[in-house]
């Protein structure tokens, strides 16, 4: 019997993989990919909670759709930023991006 916990475990696993990607990659696009994985993990959780705990409602799914919308917007803007940075520095690696420093 597949329970809610199974789905949550998949979501958690996916989230941690995405986190590792976001934290450990040099390439800005790879970092964005990691973030997408994390968002998907969240969506799995939302939909799973919706399915198991309140199947007569669709709130979780609505939430997930909003997340997808925002993620799409984020990806579009993020990639545009990456392009812009790349055009200035001819590189999409971000580990030498230290413009936030003092």
């Amino acid at each position: 019997m597949i329970t809610l916990n199974h789905y949550l475990a998949v979501g958690g696993l996916l989230f941690c993989i995405g986190l590792f990607g976001a934290l450990a990659k040099r390439n800005a696009i790879a970092v964005l990919m990691g973030i997408e994985l994390m968002l998907n993990a969240v969506n799995i959780n939302l939909v799973a909670f919706n399915h198991f705990l309140a199947p007569d409602q669709v709130t979780g799914q609505i939430f997930a759709i909003f997340v997808i919308v925002v993620a799409a917007a984020e990806v579009a803007v993020g990639l545009a930023l990456v392009l812009n940075i790349y055009r200035r520095r001819l590189d999409s690696n971000i580990d030498d991006l230290d413009w936030l420093k003092w």
Binding site: L13, C16, L19, F20, L23, A24, K25, I94
Partner: peptide
């Protein structure tokens, strides 16, 4: 698509969270 300099720490944090 290589790792950056603190991938080890990133791995530890991610694993701990997992």
């Amino acid at each position: 698509n290589l790792y950056n300099f603190n991938y080890l720490a990133a791995g530890v944090v991610s694993l701990a969270l997992l």
